[in-house]
Write a protein that binds this DNA or RNA. Structure first.
Lengths: 268, 268
DNA sequence: TTGTTCGATATTGTCGACGAAATGGGCGGT
DNA sequence: ACCGCCCATTTCGTCGACAATATCGAACAA
């Protein structure tokens, strides 16, 4: 008979307020309205994300499912979901029957990411200045202090710190949509940098951050936008279009001034 | 033994050019280098996406897995993948153990989407003017002709058409990253409109499109940017912050100026 | 030695089924 | 008549296993 299911087909999303207006019978403790699932909170996703932003996972790295499952202590299905999510956000690429790899942007795409960042972040600094208030100033000053106090002893922590400056600006802008875009762009940009950086160049000239921060605190919008744009230009200038198709070129690059040959290959 | 798998761990992403240079033994027809999986090409995703952009799926609609699987003639696992992808892009929301629903933005988020669109699309028109060339002009003129010839006979086709104008501008900008963002924003904006629109108001004042198009063709950047911004303001003004939490309020809205009271409540 | 073919291995993709949670309706108590 | 509880049904989440495909190594021919 199949029972065509006449109702409840479109019940409307909304934090599951019970069908009627009656307040919940308190089966739940309180204040837990069953939040929507946020894949970004998944520990697997978080792990891969921070590993990437700290450059512990390099572009092109294969992310095998079974391997990750064992490494992170979960089952393959969670890994699959996490990888699918990261693939949707273009943090990883999935090839059919071959697996997932950390995304490696092309040179053109890297350029386009920076162009997009200039657009977005120019808007976020401007908006951040517009709606800057006491708590915002406190947050900004606190971050600037943290960056000033950073002694570069922990390269990974420093990398996170510089990225957080840009994210903080986007947060101060108060637009969650722009914030998400900025987050995504910053992450993907770090992939672009990792792909095309010259070996041994710093990631993000941290010297510019205090200047930008001061301009924001001074509410000098035009100068702050100009400084941010210039800052991003600076970062972009640090990358070069080396052969992005790697492997062979990578090897020639590695061995070209090294003079060693594989010898006779007997591992173990 | 476990076999720590000494090599090939990071082989680099790159369109799987065969391990050697030899041409393939011809199991594949030709010219198909195994492209990365693009979830956006999935027919299920496409179906839901166009259904949403044409407002055949309204915000809040429940997207049951088994139901969709039967409706679209696939298995549940494909539906799950598609829904996960759409959830990553915030087109749908997934509640644990409750299913997926077409995303219904909050009022603030709707405002933020428009603000973001002003930022992105101001940049895309500007860039489109900068790199406008012959084929670009042809495309733009062709689209303007199509919009001019549209007789609104097919409401769904008209909706797609107006969205495509904005996407075309973004395409002309030549920045794939910005293009993707514009695509996503346009789609989510249409969800915001569907959520908060006043019943019976047109979606996107199509009258503005010819003006903007002409300004682009005339390469008047300042005026085009201003026109685009104004156009988006126009659209945003058409929505109102009605109670977004729906159902009860939705019903009161439906019946509020209808003059009927529940009387003495004896249904049937 | 160089290049090709074939088989073994490993990894991914998919399916079916079961357990878990929530929804909805009916029942009994106040 | 209303409110709360309980159970049946539906739907989602997860696990295990199998099939499909690619990768790797070795044997083989030129």
């Amino acid at each position: 008979m199949i029972k065509t299911r006449g109702k409840a087909d479109r019940v409307a999303q909304k934090t599951p307020a019970r069908s009627k207006v009656r307040r919940r019978p308190a089966p739940r403790p309180e204040s837990e309205p069953v939040d929507p699932r946020r894949m970004d909170d998944d520990p697997v996703v978080q792990g891969i994300l921070t590993a990437i932003s700290q450059k512990r996972l390099k572009p092109g790295t294969k992310l095998g499912e079974d391997r990750l499952a064992r490494a992170l202590g979960t089952t393959r299905i969670h890994i699959r979901q996490a990888l699918a999510h990261l693939a949707s956000r273009k943090i990883v690429v999935q090839f059919p029957n071959r697996g997932a790899f950390v995304y490696r942007p092309t040179w053109e795409e890297a350029r386009e990411m920076f162009a997009a960042r200039r657009v977005i972040e120019a808007a976020t600094v401007a908006a951040a200045i517009d709606r800057l208030d006491k708590p915002g100033k406190v947050l900004l000053k606190a971050h600037m202090a943290r960056e000033a106090a950073d002694d570069r002893s922990d390269r990974w922590a420093s990398l996170s710190l510089t990225a957080e400056f840009h994210i903080l600006i986007a947060q101060l802008a108060g637009n969650h949509v722009l914030l998400d875009m900025a987050r995504e762009l910053i992450l993907r940009t770090s992939l672009a940098i990792a792909t095309f950086e010259q070996p041994g160049a710093p990631d993000c000239s941290p010297d510019s951050h205090p200047d930008i921060g001061e301009l924001v605190l001074a509410r000098d919008k035009a100068a702050a936008v100009a400084a941010m744009t210039h800052h991003l230009d600076d970062i972009e200038r640090r990358i070069q279009p080396r052969q992005a198709d790697g492997e062979v070129d990578e090897l020639t690059e590695i061995f070209k001034d090294l003079g060693v040959r594989p010898a006779a290959r007997h591992d173990s």
